[in-house]
Simulated assay, not measured.
Amino acid sequence: MVEQQERTHPPVRWKLPPVWALAALVAVLLVIKGIQVLCFSQAEPVQAEVPDWIRQELLEVNAYSRPGTPLEEVNGIVIHYVGNPGTSAEQNRSYFAGLAQTGETYASSHFLVGLEGEIIQCVPLDEIAYCSSQRNVDTISIECCHPDEAGQFDPATYQSLLKLTRWLMDAYDLTTDQVIRHYDVTGKECPLYYVRNPEAWQQFLTDLDHTALD
């Protein structure tokens, strides 16, 4: 039996890829990195710089009124009334704060507008508030005080609400179509006067279009 001669192979010589291939690889890596950065930035909570005519009295983080959950996008502003005639913004803020101890319910809002037009911020704009049910995840909430059970806002409250809502619209590039009542989310009669008097609500939206910040 004739033995076969052992075959030998020439040594493998590694060649560097051409310059165009390296450039293409770098371009692909940069595109991938750009997509990662874009996705990460979209997931960052939104925030706007709060003007000095808003008084910040932020709630302590707790499970019942300020969970600390990021608010990652703002697609609307929800208007509410407090439902407690004659109470002040500070009293309602204290109620929200007290829920951390009582645990009786889940409730809060980003802002409270008082009977004299004062505005108190309770929850940061990059966190959700417990105010608007399923729309908590993508809206900013405003609770307004009112003098009696009819729920109509005093002139000072109304003017501050216009100013606050207009500022938020400008800050988050929203239109009046994205300013809604609690009623429009859940069917609850809130804010009561502006549910039972829809023409008053339409006037509010019209007034928003004609409100300019100083």
Rank of each mutant, 00 (worst) to 15 (best):
E118T: 05
T102R: 11
G117A: 06
V113R: 14
N197D: 05
Y172E: 00
S141N: 08
Q159C: 01
I128A: 05
I142S: 04
V179A: 07
E143D: 15
G151Y: 04
V113Q: 12
P191W: 02
V123A: 03
E199W: 09
L125D: 02
N136G: 06
G117Q: 03
Q178E: 14
T157D: 07
V137K: 15
R135Q: 05
V123R: 03
R135N: 02
Y172I: 03
I120D: 00
E199N: 13
A150Y: 10
T176D: 08
E118V: 04
Y193V: 01
R166G: 03
P155M: 12
D154H: 11
S160L: 04
T102G: 13
T176K: 12
D170K: 14
H110R: 03
S141D: 10
S132W: 07
E127V: 04
Y130A: 12
F111A: 07
R135I: 01
R196V: 02
V113Y: 12
W167G: 07
F153Q: 10
L112T: 10
D154C: 09
D170M: 12
D154W: 05
S109E: 08
T139L: 01
I128E: 08
G151P: 09
V113G: 13
R135A: 09
D138Q: 04
Q101E: 15
Q101S: 15
T186H: 05
Q101T: 14
T157Q: 05
H110P: 04
P124W: 07
L192H: 07
C122R: 02
M169E: 14
E143P: 00
C122S: 15
I180G: 00
I142V: 15
R196Q: 15
K163Y: 08
P191L: 02
S132P: 06
E189G: 00
I119N: 03
E189K: 14
V179Y: 06
T102P: 09
Q152H: 14
Y193A: 15
N197C: 02
D148W: 09
C190A: 13
V137F: 12
Q121Y: 06
G103C: 07
L162P: 00
L192Y: 11
A171N: 07
I142K: 07
D173H: 15
G151Q: 05
P155W: 10
E149H: 12
A107S: 15
M169A: 09
S160K: 11
Y106V: 06
Y193D: 11
A129M: 06
D173G: 10
F153K: 04
C145W: 00
I140M: 00
L174M: 05
Q121L: 05
I120F: 06
D154R: 15
T139S: 12
C122F: 04
A156D: 14
S108Q: 01
T165I: 02
